[in-house]
Structures are given as structure tokens and as C-alpha cells.
């Protein structure tokens, strides 16, 4: 099957600064692909090259098998691009904004009104479509911002941080809308600062840092990269010091430190399965009154790979 969007060897320099280096991935129809990276990692630069706004120094972009550099119009007609900032006319209404971009993107006159109504339904703004965009809330603008990219029924939707500055309700509406689109077979490229969004929407994630993709895979694959070490927190009643020594001796426990008068933190492989032996190990010295197992998540993986947290 032809990938809905694939790129390889993408590179872009600004003078001495390497903004993007050797970036490549492939997104199948109906697949949602996440691009995670700290500020300045090169996400927007990568996306700009994918949608034809920026000429790459190296590399190629194929949209549904069509070379973007060679046949830009055909390739672009299959892409819906949602810019990082709201890119709409504040003095026009929501509907007028959609009509303008619909006409510009070549929708036939008769089909246009119907399609605009469909898109407004999808983004849940049918009732506010005829007031000026300037009066919309941040979340409503964001929704029109996405809607304008859907008019020409693209096969790939590319979103550059589409939920920045959005109220929880709009965020929910946006994410549900995107999930529906993916369910209908659209390919999605999604960048965000919000780990939970990427974890929720995307079935595959690339972590980009300093312009390079440092890891790439399903959520589970990425998490396993950090190793299976879980964090286990125990609250003990009794001789905590002695219990701690016993715990260190348990097979699979890498480390055990006292973190309070009655609490111990362990690093252990397969922490959840280890719990029974941990409880047995401390018998005679103390009793376990509470346990918590923290499995590594994408956030931890991200921290491990890039040395930074995701948010500013």
C-alpha cells in the first residue's frame, strides 16, 4: 500500500544552525503519527518542508506517492495543513473564512456550501459560523483553523500544535474530531507539547530533538527503550532500615532507598509481578501498609532520550 505521506533524508540548515537533519518517516492511511519534541527541536521546520512552504536542502517528500518537489500542486491537493498559529481573517466570519479557502483550493461552486456545512458540523461550530472570527474564543478559532484544512478532503492532515491555548472543552472536541477522521481513514501527522494528547491520538510516535529523530515506534516500543525498570513505592510499619536491606537482596531489585520515616523507593524490573516477593522479604521486620508501582511512560522516555521535559 502506498504511504499517505512519506519523507526521507530531510535536511535544512539556517547558516550554521542545523534545524533539521536526516528526518524520515512514513504514515499509512488511517494512521496517526505523532512528532514530539522540545521547543526549537525542528518540528515546525519539518512540517514546513512537508507542506511545501520551505524548500528542503536535502531529502524528498512523497504525498500518496506523488513527489512534492516535482508535482507540487498535485501533492498539495492531498494535504491539509493546520498552521501552528491561527491563520484566518479576523474581520470575516467563520463561514466566510471557510468559503474563501474553499474557493481558493478549487472546490466547485455548487459543492462548496454543502462541504462548508459538513466541516462546520464536524468541528461543532455550525451555530456560530456567521459571527466574525475576531469575536471567537481561542478554542473556536482553533477549530476553524482546523476546518479550513479539511475543506478539500485531504488524504493527510498535518497539524502543528493544534491545541495550544485551547480550553478543555474545545480540546476535547478537537481530539474527538481528529479521532473520527482517523477512523474514517485519514492519515494524521500531529505535533504537540501535550504528551497525553499524543499518547491518546497517535499510534506511532517519533521523538525529535536538535533536528534529529532520536527514537521512533509505537508507544510500547518507545517505553521499552528506557528498559523495563519500574519504580515501586512502599510504605512500611516496623524496622524500616532492616526491611530496606532485605528488599535490596530481592532478585530483580536494582536499588532501594529510604525516602522518609516509613517509606522506601525501589527500582525494579517487572515491579508489579515482584510485589509478592517484596512483601515476603520484609516479613519479620516490618509490614507493608501501602504500595504503588509506577511504570515508565512516554514522558519518562522523552526525559531519558532528550534530557528535557516536554513543556516550557
Amino acid at each position: 500500500m502506498t504511504a499517505a505521506l512519506s519523507c526521507g533524508g530531510l535536511g535544512k540548515r539556517y547558516g550554521d544552525l542545523v534545524a533539521v537533519h536526516d528526518v524520515g518517516f512514513s504514515i499509512a492511511p488511517g494512521q496517526a503519527y505523532g512528532l514530539l519534541g522540545p521547543n526549537g527541536a525542528g518540528k515546525t521546520t519539518t512540517i514546513s518542508m512537508l507542506v511545501g512552504l520551505l524548500r528542503p536542502d536535502t531529502g524528498t517528500v512523497l504525498v500518496g506517492g506523488v513527489d512534492l518537489a516535482r508535482e507540487p500542486l498535485r501533492a498539495k491537493s492531498r494535504i491539509g495543513y493546520v498552521p501552528q498559529e491561527i491563520a484566518l481573517y479576523p474581520e470575516l466570519t467563520g463561514r466566510e473564512n471557510l468559503r474563501f479557502f474553499g474557493r481558493l483550493f478549487g472546490l466547485p461552486r455548487r459543492a462548496l456550501a454543502t462541504r462548508i456545512a459538513e466541516v462546520l458540523d464536524l468541528i461543532g461550530l455550525a451555530d456560530r459560523a456567521d459571527t466574525k472570527l475576531g469575536t471567537y474564543s481561542g478554542g473556536m478559532k482553533r477549530r476553524i483553523n482546523i476546518g479550513a484544512a479539511l475543506l478539500h478532503r485531504p488524504e493527510v492532515l498535518i497539524l502543528d500544535e493544534p491545541t495550544v491555548g485551547v480550553d478543555p472543552q474545545s480540546r476535547k472536541a478537537i481530539l474527538e474530531g481528529l479521532e473520527r477522521l482517523v477512523g474514517d481513514g485519514m492519515a494524521l501527522l500531529y505535533t504537540s507539547h501535550y504528551m497525553e494528547e499524543v499518547e491518546r491520538v497517535c499510534d506511532r510516535v517519533a521523538i525529535i530533538d536538535h533536528g534529529r529523530i532520536v527514537a521512533d515506534g509505537t508507544r510500547r516500543e518507545l517505553v521499552s527503550l528506557v528498559g523495563g525498570a519500574d519504580t515501586v513505592e512502599l510504605v512500611l510499619d516496623g524496622d524500616v532500615e532492616a526491611a530496606c536491606a532485605k528488599l535490596r537482596a530481592v532478585e530483580g531489585v536494582a536499588e532501594a532507598v529510604r525516602t522518609g520515616a516509613a517509606s522506601v523507593r525501589l527500582m525494579a524490573d517487572g515491579g508489579r509481578y515482584l510485589l509478592p516477593s517484596l512483601i515476603t522479604a520484609v516479613e519479620g521486620h516490618a509490614t507493608v501498609t501501602a504500595t504503588q508501582v509506577i511504570e515508565p511512560d512516554l514522558e519518562a522516555t522523552f526525559l531519558h532520550l532528550t534530557g528535557t521535559t516536554l513543556r516550557d
Partner: peptide, 9 residues
């Protein structure tokens, strides 16, 4: 940019 990313010359 939205225009330039669209399918038009």
C-alpha cells in the same frame, strides 16, 4: 502560508 501550502500556483 496557508495559501502557499494549498494546491495553487
Amino acid at each position: 502560508d496557508r495559501m502557499r501550502a494549498g494546491p495553487l500556483a
